[in-house]
Amino acid sequence: MKKKLAWILFLVVAIFNIATIAKAEEKPTILVLGDSLSAGYNIELEQGWVELLNQKLQREGYPHTVVNGSISGDTTTQGLLRLPTLLEQYQPEVVIIELGGNDALRGTSPTLIKRNLSNLISTSKRSGAEVLLLGIQIPPNYGQRYAQAFFDNYAQLANEKKVKLVPFFLENVGGNNELMQEDGIHPNAKAQPTLLKNVWPQLETQIKMPD
């Protein structure tokens, strides 16, 4: 009987040690929740800024892995539906939220967009993740008041929710024909390093190099 108890105790300790080692070896994750701007619309996957970020982290010795949870055409509502599963599956250290543009193209109320973005931030923070919010500007198709209210959402939320912000994700890209696809909406492959350059200064403050 004593031998049996000792063997059971040994197994319990062994399983605990294996689980502890496995946990220690898990790489911290950065989750990108976005739309076509991050999904690499009409360009090769390895050319997109998210993959360039992954390569940069590996090159510079960061332990992190990047999960691209972006889907072309996604709205903030669709992002809210997908986020809980992604958080449970990957348990990210940082969530980069790049959504809202498709809502605006549909003329969705800026108030509703802000509410959805706020819920995305809160859901991410409740999981223990830090949040980086990427601000988007849109052309004044629905009028200047709409475009300004939409753009202001991002700075307001960053202040209210105490999260990091890239004020304009497409800085030095939007409006530059050499860096945009023919549709005038999506950045081309040449623009991707600039998009990463726009994101990196804020993201760098949220991730840690190994000791």
Rank of each mutant, 00 (worst) to 15 (best):
K2S: 08
K2A: 09
K3Q: 13
K3Y: 12
L5G: 11
A6R: 15
A6K: 13
A6D: 10
A6H: 06
A6C: 06
W7I: 13
L9R: 11
L9N: 07
L9I: 10
F10V: 13
V12C: 13
V12P: 07
V12W: 11
V13T: 12
A14K: 00
I15H: 04
I15A: 14
N17I: 14
I18V: 15
A19G: 08
T20P: 03
T20H: 13
I21V: 15
A22R: 15
E26L: 11
E26Q: 15
E26N: 13
K27Q: 14
T29Y: 01
L31T: 02
L31C: 08
V32T: 04
L33W: 05
G34V: 05
G34F: 05
G34W: 09
D35V: 07
D35W: 09
L37A: 07
L37C: 03
Y41M: 11
Y41K: 05
Y41A: 13
N42V: 11
N42Q: 15
I43S: 00
E44L: 10
E46W: 01
E46Y: 05
E46A: 06
E46K: 10
E46F: 04
Q47H: 07
Q47P: 00
Q47L: 05
Q47V: 03
G48S: 15
G48W: 06
V50C: 03
V50I: 04
E51D: 12
L52F: 00
L52M: 06
L52T: 04
L53T: 03
L53S: 00
L53R: 06
N54L: 02
Q55Y: 02
Q55H: 00
K56T: 04
L57T: 07
Q58S: 15
Q58I: 06
Q58M: 08
Q58K: 15
E60W: 02
E60M: 06
G61Q: 00
G61S: 09
G61P: 10
G61Y: 06
P63Q: 13
H64G: 04
H64E: 11
H64Y: 15
T65S: 12
V66M: 00
V66F: 04
V67A: 03
V67F: 06
N68K: 03
N68F: 04
I71E: 07
I71A: 06
G73N: 10
G73M: 09
G73A: 07
T75I: 07
T76K: 12
T76F: 07
T76A: 08
T77M: 09
T77S: 13
T77E: 13
Q78V: 07
G79N: 11
G79E: 09
L80G: 15
R82H: 09
R82P: 05
L83R: 04
L83S: 07
T85Y: 11
T85L: 10
T85S: 14
L87E: 09
L87A: 08
Q89N: 12
Q89D: 13
P92Q: 07
P92L: 08
E93W: 02
V94C: 01
V95E: 06
I96K: 04
I96V: 14
I96N: 00
I96P: 01
I97K: 04
I97W: 03
I97G: 01
I97E: 02
E98W: 04
L99A: 08
L99D: 08
